[in-house]
Design a protein around this nucleic acid. Structure first.
Lengths: 197, 197
DNA sequence: GTCTATACAACGATAGAC
DNA sequence: GTCTATCGTTGTATAGAC
């Protein structure tokens, strides 16, 4: 196995494109700017990718893979923790990860304004990661219920947790980190009081 | 005062543009398509607006004005209601209004991915409506606190309420109406339990 | 794999006749 | 106020030499 000392051109294209697609969207990003930032001429892009959509899909694949990999490391952080802590860590780590501007932005763009012709492909990829998340959450809720810490109505708790997650996710982009932290803390406290026995 | 029997051309342009900007964004919308849907030729647009940005700003102005007007009618619905109900109605009406696909989409786009050169102008317009909202919420919370119904920590309650609002707003776009209604109900129940004395 | 050169369509915008 | 005609630019994409 060879050691990769530096990014090859295809990877560099993907990295540059991620940044541009995140900030400017699919239509707002031109191949000319991508090529320029990579340091090659426009036609050279076609030696690595079939066309613009092909570049976009490669970027999305990487974003998804990175997110799922990150989720695995978070799941590892949860072992040997109290169930209550697990629920909070899951929430906090998620927003911390997506706070990374470019990652969070492209994630948001994908989910809210998917490019028309790529809608179906994106939805598939997204559903896989969502199922994983729900499985993890449900396991924690089961634990909490068996210990008699939270109420019995799992669906209510799960719906409220996802709403909490979506709300804090949204707010990552409006507010500076320090303010967001306070809002997250407060929202969590109310949520926790709301689901306790 | 004359009675307007049908839309004039400028209004038609704004209506068509709202729909296109909402679904395709600023860059994704072409003047050719706007003109085509209005039923005129491209250069005729310039008899009504200075350029593309000018059309976009006119659309945004209308969206904002409509939203503020709607908020007024909601505020009227609140009188003679219990404070708890007020808080819920405010939440529900807001998502109901933004559920209108085109309105909600362009609102979301504006706030999350404002067009670079229009960022400042949009922010101003948005802040005005947000202040109004916060004022209304705080008045309700004060009422609830004085009656000893909810806890004393107003900042915590306000932060959690906004998170609830942002979360349900986000979910308007993911889930079909019937599922969203259930999620809203559940999230609200947990929130309410969480802020009660 | 990278380049120059170029094709070709679509873009926003303007000129000027009616 | 609407049109035809057209400008200049930029967009994606391809051909073919090195």
């Amino acid at each position: 196995m060879e050691v990769q000392t530096s990014q090859n051109t295809a990877d560099k294209i993907k990295a540059v494109s991620l940044s541009l697609f995140a900030r400017k969207g699919f239509e707002g990003t031109s191949l000319a700017e991508i090529a320029s930032r990579v340091g090659i001429k426009k036609p050279s892009l076609y030696a690595h990718f079939k066309n613009k959509e092909d570049i976009f899909l490669a970027v999305i694949d990487k974003v998804m893979a990175d997110y799922i990999a990150y989720f695995e490391t978070v799941a590892n952080k949860l072992v040997n923790r109290q169930a209550e802590e697990k629920l909070f860590i899951l929430l906090k780590e998620n927003t911390d990860y997506l706070r990374d501007e470019e990652l969070g932005l492209i994630w948001k763009r994908m989910m809210l304004f998917p490019h028309e012709t790529l809608k179906e492909k994106l939805k598939e990829k997204f559903l896989a990661s969502e199922e994983k998340m729900t499985g993890t959450i449900l396991a924690i809720l089961k634990e909490l219920k068996e210990d008699g810490i939270i109420q019995e109505n799992t669906e209510e708790v799960l719906d409220a947790y996802y709403c909490l997650m979506d709300g804090t996710f949204e707010q990552v982009f409006y507010y500076p980190e320090i303010e967001h932290k306070r809002r997250l803390q407060h929202s969590w406290q109310v949520f926790w009081k709301g689901i306790k026995r």
